[in-house]
């Protein structure tokens, strides 16, 4: 144990011990969130491959524009990199880098959130326009939720740095948020890659269940 390493005010343990524990906890949370997002991936690929009732595609094949998915993904990657850059700087004692990195990360995440909401508002289909529309809406909605949560975390790091809570010897929270942002980008990547590579269903001979109407 380093002589100068600070101790946790609540447990009295060295902060590196607490940080190590937190890191594992975040890894477990990421595993859990990943299997949740896998449900979306399963849903997308399953419904895409089945094309039930020939209703995978949205009306008039009005697919979502692809570049916003990738733009948001890139925004999240950059947010993660900015946070990591700030964190590494903080570990070397450069508080300015931490402030800049976390602020840039926060702003990028806010931009990603705004972009995500704008994308949802401008989809050329509604959530009920077929299976593609439903899953794509969910990709976008869940990403918006995650980005909002992540921007809270990133702003929190900025604010905590301002308040002197993130220091050279106790910067682990910034590292954890940087780690989390990598996962966030991973989720956005899943949505982007699905919508880009799996558009027209390969099943052109799907069963027809008709169109149920109220009597």
């Amino acid at each position: 144990m380093s002589v100068t390493e600070p101790l946790s005010p609540t447990t009295g343990e060295p902060v590196s011990v607490v940080a190590s524990r937190n890191r594992l906890g975040v890894w477990f949370i990421i595993i859990s969130c990943t299997t949740g997002s896998l449900s979306l991936l399963i849903s997308y690929s399953y419904l895409w491959s089945l094309n039930v009732n020939s209703a995978w595609a949205p009306p008039n094949n009005a697919w979502a524009t692809l570049w916003p998915f990738w733009a948001i993904f890139v925004g999240e990657i950059l947010a993660g990199l900015a946070m990591r850059w700030g964190w590494k700087g903080m570990e070397k004692g450069d508080r300015g880098r931490m402030l800049a990195g976390s602020l840039i990360s926060s702003l990028l995440l806010i931009a990603a959130f705004v972009g995500q909401v704008a994308q949802i508002m401008t989809f050329p289909f509604g959530p009920s326009d077929g299976a593609y529309a439903s899953v794509t809406f969910w990709f976008a909605l869940s990403n918006a939720g995650w980005v909002l949560l992540s921007s809270f975390l990133a702003f929190g790091i900025f604010n905590r740095t301002l308040a002197g809570k993130i220091t050279a010897t106790n910067a682990s929270h910034a590292g954890l948020v940087a780690m989390w942002l990598v996962w966030l980008a991973g989720v956005a990547f899943i949505g982007a890659i699905c919508t880009t590579t799996m558009q027209e269903s390969p099943n052109t001979n799907s069963p027809d269940f008709g169109n149920f109407q109220e009597p």
Binding site: S43, L47, N51, V52, N53, S54, A55, W56, P127, S128, D129, G130, A131, Y132, A133, S134, V135, F137, W138, F209, G210, N211, F212
Partner: peptide
């Protein structure tokens, strides 16, 4: 949405 609605995919 129509995750489980066969008429809509």
């Amino acid at each position: 949405t129509s995750f489980y609605v066969p008429a809509q995919g």
